[in-house]
Amino acid sequence: MAIHEPGRRLMHHVPLRFVRKRVEGGGGHSVSAALNLTSMIDFLVTIVVFLLMTFSASGEIPVDKSVKLPKAENTMDMLDAPMVAINGRQILVDGHPAGSTGAIEDQGKMQRIDELGAFLKTRREQWKTLNPGKSSKDFPGVCVLQVHETVSALVVKSVFQTAALSGYPNVSFMVGQIPKVEHH
């Protein structure tokens, strides 16, 4: 069967041209079609509302890549404070190395970590420089520890003690938030 050009078929083969023109129909729909935008706008508005509700102005808190944090139910909101990260090998203050966990574990007893203490004291002095009108009593003394979940209590307690002795008695442990389970 021969291949024909696409187009209208009905009444196409009437031999008289003036009759064919009349019966075959010449109008047809416009090529341009209007899209219904209502559903699209509804969808966009829903996404905007959802994202606005989940928006956090405080931004994302950087967590050391090598640290896997434990999770807890009874937590508080995060705050802006010096970050001390403890992974399996190192202690880092805002990304700078400030001690080794291996050295503490080798000693086998709680101890003051001198490098960490020096870093935290420097941060304290920086706070005093940035807040010249405030006294030492106004210093919040808060630092946040990002501790890998398998780090031993000995290392955690040594860092805790060092922070306290360096003027940071309020130590917070960063954790992942898990939903509360009702205890009956």
Partner: peptide, 17 residues
Amino acid sequence: LLLTAVWSHMARVNADA
């Protein structure tokens, strides 16, 4: 909002020396 979205919510537990 998608670019600035924070998907992992961190919290803290406090300890006082």
